[in-house]
Write a protein that binds this DNA or RNA. Structure first.
Lengths: 153, 153
DNA sequence: TTCGATGCAAATAGTTTGCATTCTA
DNA sequence: TAGAATGCAAACTATTTGCATCGAA
């Protein structure tokens, strides 16, 4: 059982999925995926653009947005809409469990927590009003442990 | 026990709070509050601006944004950041319970549900990682009953 | 060789800000 | 009449789109 992720492996896997689906593998797509595979962080489109441009200066910002959109549709990338600021993208690695995003209202950091956190709420809201929760696309807000202890001090 | 809300009463109450806090009661503030008091819907700043301009044509869009911000700080108005589209504002009526917002990914409609929906999740996340959930500021996404049955048909 | 992906420029939505002026308290 | 709130213009952030061109399959 491994608990570290190999960037190269993640990248190859994502590109493999693209090929399986008959999607084209271009410089822009490869670049975006490489950036996403290199971190477990959640990156904004702008941030991804900055990094991709370092390697491939010709890639345009609009292409990054379109690429991200395609990758989300293909299912190798997911995005979360955070309460403030831009959408955050991350690789949907098959090795990684779906997770829920917690955003600290103070330091804006994004914390991943297990997807089953909302299982109870999902069941409840489905039963009472027929609303089907999509926990993977949800961002919750509040205050992280660090900022809470800072506030106390 | 009343289950309808009197717009005039809500408006007067909100304005009362402003005065209590030593906040100024201006045409713009009165206008924004009147719109918010007239509905239980969640309105975007743009929508509020449109409605306010009908009554008070001189009120500027920027003023509506600043006014909403002030009203949020005073505590008579709350806003939620929805996954797509603009922030949604609503009156924080003392008669109204705090509630959680569900957004349908299909029809974009906003559904209120009881705040205690996330009590379990809040307790869990506080205990495990020391994160303090702020359920009033949270928007959850998914598919509403109506769109789910549409999809089936 | 074809059609999807890209580069570029321009537009769009949502929101914020600096500054002079107005108006509430 | 002091200073907070406003009007206006302009900037800003995040994102999208039309169109001609390019390049992966």
């Amino acid at each position: 059982m491994k608990d570290t992720i190999d960037p190269t492996e993640s990248l190859d896997r994502a590109i493999g999925v693209l090929r399986e689906r008959g999607e084209r593998v271009t410089t822009a797509r490869r670049g975006v995926l490489a950036i996403l595979a290199s971190t477990t962080e959640h990156l904004s489109a702008e941030r991804i653009y900055d990094e991709v441009v370092d390697r491939a200066p010709d890639v345009h910002r609009a292409t990054v947005y379109r690429t991200l959109d395609s990758l989300v549709n293909v299912g190798v990338v997911a995005h979360v809409h955070l309460p403030h600021g831009p959408a955050a993208y991350h690789l949907l690695d098959s090795g990684a469990r779906p997770h829920i995003h917690l955003v600290c209202r103070e330091c804006k950091s994004v914390i991943d927590t297990s997807a089953d956190l909302l299982d109870g709420a999902a069941a409840s809201v489905l039963e009472t009003i027929g609303f089907e929760l999509d926990p993977d696309h949800v961002a919750l807000t509040g205050w992280c442990a660090h900022c809470r202890s800072e506030a106390r001090a």
